[in-house]
């Protein structure tokens, strides 16, 4: 198994109830998993725990046979090799599109970096936009930059937090298709979070249904 999440629990300090309770799931290499649930149901918290942005109160996360977190181990987010696209994209406003993508590239000389940046820009169909600043792009373009930036360092796992929530309905299905194509091209393992059943059905291999922090069921998207 590529990713193993076991008995994950999380509670915010001073909160009476746990946000996540006994969350367990295993994911295979190249699989696209969707966590579906209502807002405030703890979906994003699962992503933040996998990313290392929050520390679970209990449980274990293993990626590629290596323990990322349990009672005694905690690997910081920058060392997990996990990429995340944030709900509001979080593109650095003081950097151009190219600089944003370059930001995560390491252990490469400048030529290799430039090559990789162009490769990513082509992947998301934004070849001519490298010199623009984020505020000069539309919402859909910003999202594609965010995906390019996240994929550039070749993460082993991609996390998408409500990837379509900021887009209007017309654009939604178009961008969903585009992203689907990009993800298929890279054959990367994906966990994404949504409250929209259509999104879940269109993109995921399996769907984890979450209610009040607990897994209700895990279903194959064809059967959903």
């Amino acid at each position: 198994m590529f990713i193993e999440i076991e008995d994950l629990c999380f509670r915010y300090p001073n909160a009476p109830k746990a946000v996540i309770q006994d969350f367990s799931v295993t994911i295979e290499h190249g699989e696209v998993i969707c966590i579906l649930g209502e807002s405030g149901g703890g979906k994003s918290t699962v992503l933040r725990l996998v990313a290392g942005l929050e520390i679970p109160s209990k449980g274990r996360i293993k990626i590629n046979e290596i323990t990322m977190v349990d009672q005694s181990v905690f690997v910081p987010p920058e060392k997990r090799g996990v990429g995340m696209v944030f709900q509001d994209y979080a593109l650095f406003p003081h950097m151009t599109v190219s600089e944003n993508i370059r930001f995560g590239l390491k252990k490469m000389n400048n030529k290799e970096k430039d090559f990789r940046i162009n490769q990513m820009l082509d992947l998301v169909n934004l070849g001519d936009y490298g010199k623009r600043y984020p505020y000069e792009l539309s919402g859909g373009q910003q999202q594609r930059v965010a995906i390019a930036r996240t994929l550039a360092p070749k993460p082993s796992l991609l996390l998408l937090d409500e990837p379509f929530s900021n887009l209007d309905t017309e654009l939604r299905s178009k961008i969903r298709e585009e992203i689907n194509i990009i993800l298929k091209q890279t054959s990367i393992t994906v966990i994404f979070v949504t409250h929209d059943k259509e999104d879940a059905k269109a993109m995921a291999d399996r769907i984890v249904i979450l209610k009040e922090g607990k897994i209700v069921e895990i279903v194959d998207s064809i059967l959903f």
Partner: peptide
Amino acid sequence: KFFEASRMLGK
């Protein structure tokens, strides 16, 4: 969020 995005990109 920018802090978190940067950490996720390996800094």
